[in-house]
Amino acid sequence: MHRTEKNLHPILSLVFSLFLFVSGLLFVKEKWFLIYILTFLIILLIFRFGGTILKIMPLILIFGSLMALITTINGSRWDVLYSFYRVFALVPAITLSMSIKPVHLVRSFNQIKVPHWISLGFLIVIRFVRIFLDEIRQIRQAIILRGIRFTETPVLWGRAFFIPLIIRVLSISENLAVSLETRAFSTEVEGTAYETITFEKRNYIFAIMSSTCLAVYIYLFIGGEL
């Protein structure tokens, strides 16, 4: 069974998000940096990632401004700008990585015979981050329910936050491991796939467009001229 998804092939998304993460940080001080970002934003918009970009943009702007503000303490005007750019450079990489569905990544890893321990690692890390954030929310609610306020008793608040958090994290790690083992997730046996993750035409187009643009910017970065 094939799913029709607007998302790109998960491995392609993962590889390009890593490339864009590194290149973005490298290109921050180049005078064409904004054009580089714009190029990839346009490519992502063409491939229908507009919604994700809009979702992450407010957070990027807040975090970028915060970093820039911190740099104003002992940095020059350019340092402040570069601090903002460093956060802004993450937009294309984050957009691509957010589009990856963990299950699709695992299935495509299995298809290309990547060892199970690698896909298992990815799976647990992705899931764990989400559970961890949810746990923090629940613990904060429980603290409120026991009438503890940070402003009145900060030490008690800290205790009420960190002790359950540590206990919950240990419990969740154990239960996730048990869950995977009892559901026969094996590092030795080859399984089947409910659906095949195919490398469709749009993936080739994305790969060609992005590689070409990235090659041009790398060429400029190492001193080449157009």
């Binding site: 963990p102 899931r127 559970i131 996730l176 559901r183 094996s186 046996v189 089947t192 796939a193």
Partner: peptide, 30 residues
Amino acid sequence: SVFQNPREQIIFDEILDEIVFPMENLGIDP
């Protein structure tokens, strides 16, 4: 095995993926 605390055992975002995951691991025909 079905354990207590189901929340801590869920791995995937969608119900479909959660149900088929162990079947995939056992090599069951699609």
